[in-house]
């Protein structure tokens, strides 16, 4: 549905986007993830027709964003970062204005505003001025604006920034709800958010795609990095004795309150074998736990590596 090819965007001498290739299928909820300044917003702004790319092409349903600007804009509902609205207007007037620009039939406007007020939970603020609203409500008004013409694609730039945890959950639920019927692309720098809502995560760093896949796939990329933590009482020479144990890559041992804290790095889950081995010794197991590299770690490794390369 959306094809981004070799997209480059530079502002003066700085390159914000350095050759992004991405193809997005219809009906996907795609999370664009990356640290601040990675080029997420620039990519979304080009996709929505607000900025012009320096080179490369972006097409939506076969329409090039530069040549068929209006067609593409009709297909996309867009919520810019921090939802900039006209602060002196009433919410109702503002949404009505957007409905007119989106060419919704005059008789259907009232009906549509009611639906959106229901869906976005802004029913009781419709007759307030926008600058009297809290950040969460502004975000929802912005969301209602983006969904006005029931577009096939919804682009949301950091929709949950600056919201409190309850509001974040609400916005996420709305996104999931919409995502059942529409293609949703949203950017965030919070990983757990992408993990909780997306079908597919694309990690961008310094203007390039560094990882792309479902949350589970991304986790698998890092498989082989298994960490097992054991706390032992009444144990001595643990490193020495486990040295030749099959499947262990390396061992770290620490003294902690008369107990031994042992961290074992391995390529596979060997908790069973370890337990059976320890059962035959005098050691007492206080704790045995497994840590698979989380997405958080993947994100940090991928984005940190780049910084180190610089």
């Amino acid at each position: 549905m959306i094809e981004i090819k070799e997209l480059v965007k530079s502002y003066g001498s700085t390159n914000a986007v350095k050759g992004i290739n991405l193809s997005i299928k219809s009906g996907e909820i795609l999370g664009l993830l990356g640290p601040n300044g990675a080029g997420k917003s620039s990519t979304l702004r080009i996709l929505t027709g607000y900025l012009k790319s320096t080179s490369g092409t972006v097409s939506v349903k076969g329409f090039d964003v530069n040549e068929h600007e209006l067609e593409v804009k009709k297909l996309i509902g867009y919520l810019p970062e921090s939802a900039p609205l006209y602060s002196e207007m009433l919410v109702y007037d503002y949404l009505k204005y957007i409905a007119e620009l989106r060419e919704i039939h005059k008789e259907k406007i009232e009906q549509r505003l009611k639906e959106l007020a229901e869906l976005c939970g802004i029913k009781n603020v419709m007759h307030k001025t926008i600058n009297s609203l809290s950040k969460g409500y502004k975000q929802r008004v912005g969301l209602a604006q983006a969904m006005m013409s029931d577009p096939e694609i919804l682009v949301l730039d950091e929709p949950t920034t600056g919201l409190d945890p309850n509001q974040i959950v609400e916005i996420r639920n709305i996104i999931k709800e919409i995502g059942k019927r529409k293609t949703v692309i949203f950017s965030t720098h919070i990983l757990s958010e992408a993990e909780a809502t997306c079908d597919r995560i694309v990690i961008i760093n310094s203007g390039k795609v560094v990882a792309d896949g479902t949350p589970d796939e991304l986790k698998k990329i890092m498989e082989g990095d298994i960490k097992i933590k054991i706390t032992l009482a009444n144990a001595n020479n643990v490193t020495e004795k486990l040295k030749d144990f099959e499947g262990i890559d390396s061992i770290e041992e620490k003294e902690f309150n008369d107990n031994k804290e042992v961290t074992i790095y391995s390529t596979k889950d060997i908790r069973k074998e370890l337990y059976l081995y320890i059962k035959n010794t005098d050691w007492i197991i206080l704790n045995l736990s497994l840590e698979i590299k989380s997405l958080e770690n993947i994100f940090r490794t991928l984005t940190q590596e780049e910084i180190n390369e610089k």
Binding site: K74, P80, E81, S82, L85
Partner: peptide, 14 residues
């Protein structure tokens, strides 16, 4: 200044 042009500029208008 307020950034609202980003919203207006991405509506289907020239």
């Amino acid at each position: 200044k307020t950034g609202s042009y980003e919203m207006l500029g991405t509506q289907p208008v020239t």
